[in-house]
Simulated scan of single mutants.
Amino acid sequence: MKILFLSWGVFPQKGGGLEKVTYYYLKYLDYFNNVVYLFILNLTDDVKSFWNNKLKNSKIFGLNMKLYQSYIDYFKYGSFTLYKRKIIDYKKAVIEYKDRILDILKKMKLDFDIIYAYDWLTALAGIEIKKIYKKPLVIHFHSLVYDRVGGNPDVLKYLYDYDYGIELEACKYADKIVVVSKREKDILVKYYNCDENKIDVIYNAPDDDFSIKEKINSKIKEKYKIVLYLGRMTMHKGPDYLLRAAKRVLEKRKDVLFIFAGTGEMLEQLIKMAADLNISKNVIFTGWVDDDLAEYLYSIADIFVLPSISEPFGLTPFEALKYKDFIIISKQTGVYEVLKNALAVDFWDVNKMADYILALLSYPKLGEYEIKLCLDDIKNLSWKNSVEKLISIFNSLI
Rank of each mutant, 00 (worst) to 15 (best):
residue 25 Y to P: 06
residue 342 A to W: 07
residue 254 K to F: 00
residue 218 S to G: 06
residue 370 E to N: 08
residue 83 Y to E: 03
residue 232 R to D: 01
residue 292 D to K: 02
residue 382 S to W: 07
residue 233 M to N: 02
residue 347 F to G: 00
residue 241 Y to M: 05
residue 195 D to T: 15
residue 202 I to Y: 12
residue 71 Y to I: 13
residue 375 L to G: 12
residue 38 L to M: 11
residue 49 S to Y: 12
residue 246 A to V: 00
residue 30 D to R: 08
residue 271 I to C: 07
residue 162 Y to T: 13
residue 254 K to T: 03
residue 131 K to S: 13
residue 150 G to W: 09
residue 330 S to C: 05
residue 105 L to D: 07
residue 242 L to S: 02
residue 132 I to T: 12
residue 217 N to H: 11
residue 323 Y to G: 11
residue 70 S to E: 00
residue 268 E to D: 15
residue 324 K to V: 05
residue 375 L to F: 08
residue 138 V to T: 15
residue 282 N to R: 00
residue 41 L to A: 11
residue 68 Y to P: 11
residue 179 V to S: 15
residue 385 N to I: 09
residue 72 I to C: 14
residue 255 D to L: 02
residue 251 E to I: 02
residue 328 I to A: 10
residue 248 R to T: 04
residue 328 I to L: 13
residue 193 N to W: 06
residue 137 L to K: 08
residue 342 A to V: 09
residue 354 A to D: 06
residue 261 A to P: 04
residue 333 T to P: 00
residue 175 D to P: 15
residue 162 Y to D: 15
residue 339 L to R: 06
residue 260 F to P: 03
residue 165 G to Y: 15
residue 252 K to L: 03
residue 30 D to N: 10
residue 117 A to K: 04
residue 14 K to Q: 06
residue 280 S to Q: 08
residue 1 M to T: 15
residue 111 D to W: 04
residue 211 S to I: 13
residue 126 G to S: 09
residue 232 R to I: 02
residue 99 D to N: 15
residue 169 E to W: 12
residue 255 D to R: 00
residue 141 F to H: 12
residue 391 I to S: 07
residue 53 N to D: 12
residue 180 V to I: 14
residue 137 L to F: 06
residue 302 D to E: 06
residue 290 D to E: 00
residue 205 A to F: 08
residue 278 N to S: 12
residue 111 D to G: 05
residue 22 T to Y: 12
residue 202 I to Q: 03
residue 289 V to G: 00
residue 128 E to S: 14
residue 375 L to D: 03
residue 65 M to R: 14
residue 219 K to E: 10
residue 306 L to G: 12
residue 350 V to S: 04
residue 172 K to I: 14
residue 320 A to T: 09
residue 103 D to W: 07
residue 239 P to S: 00
residue 152 N to A: 03
residue 209 D to F: 07
residue 372 K to V: 11
